[in-house]
């Protein structure tokens, strides 16, 4: 079986003063993912390695990591596709708890700021609230978000101070702003017009590149800017 060299950036706050690189030789099958390689290390080599994952099939968004310098889901990328030397680091811009596990709270705090739930004060209808395919199309892309934080933690503006609300929160605001059933668009656009909002975006496109769901993140951010400026899409 071929082997790959997996370099993991490790850090135990109770022992280490700063993070260090640990190298592991890991045998892999053609269809093994980076997550399988991390499992191999944790289960066979060093059980103290901390890594977060849940569904392991690209749905839950728990194992977003900086893999060979790019934010990816470890469960969605094959070892054979990215070479035999692979570096794995925790997401940037969020505090490291241990090894590859970061504290996601600052990320979810930003997410909550945009009120990511349906706002509609009309009396609850007897049946569903109908929507045409065209109306759905306006916000469909954003509904694919799994909140893995790959986009927000790939954004250089977010890295600086963490003040910027970040692409994930903007995409999730977009998902409701352009939903015909929602009435909170004004409120959300006002939040995104603030200093920490959409106008901090410098259209770097790292977010679009990082999204494991293929959401056109930068385009969605631009649509929010346009809605604030002229209204509508």
């Amino acid at each position: 079986m071929p082997t790959a060299k997996i370099r993991v950036k490790r850090f135990n706050p109770e022992k280490d003063r700063k993070p260090y690189w640990a190298d592991y030789e890991v045998p892999y099958e053609p269809f093994d993912r980076v997550l399988d390689a991390l499992h191999y290390i944790k289960w066979n080599v060093d059980g103290t390695l901390a890594v977060r994952r849940s569904c392991a099939h690209g749905i839950c968004g728990s194992d977003a990591l900086l893999i060979n310098g790019v934010n990816r889901l470890a469960c969605k990328i094959l070892v054979k596709d990215i070479g035999t030397t692979i570096s794995v680091e925790p997401l940037r811009g969020l505090p490291v708890i241990k090894d590859l596990v970061v504290n996601m709270e600052p990320f979810f705090d930003k997410y909550k700021q945009v009120k990511p739930w349906l706002i509609n004060d009309d009396p609850t209808p007897e049946k569903e609230r109908p929507q045409s395919p065209e109306q759905r199309e306006l916000f469909d892309d954003g509904t694919k978000c799994i909140l893995c934080a790959a986009c927000t933690t790939s954004c250089p503006v977010y890295w600086t101070t963490g003040e910027y609300i970040g692409p994930a929160a903007i995409v999730n605001a977009h998902r409701f702003i352009f939903d015909s059933r929602d009435q909170g668009g004004q409120e959300r656009l006002a939040i995104l017009a603030e200093k920490s909002g959409a106008f901090r975006c410098r259209t770097v496109f790292n977010c679009t590149d990082a999204c494991p769901q293929g959401i056109e993140v930068t385009k969605r951010v631009q649509e929010v800017k346009r809605a604030i400026t002229v209204g509508g899409i």
């Binding site: 015909s180 009435q183 656009l189 006002a190 909002g197 106008f199 604030i228 400026t229």
Partner: peptide, 20 residues
Amino acid sequence: MQATRARPAGRGWEWFCWLY
């Protein structure tokens, strides 16, 4: 439905700088 498409009332200084 209309309300969601209108632009927000207070667009702010950051928006102005961006547009300027």
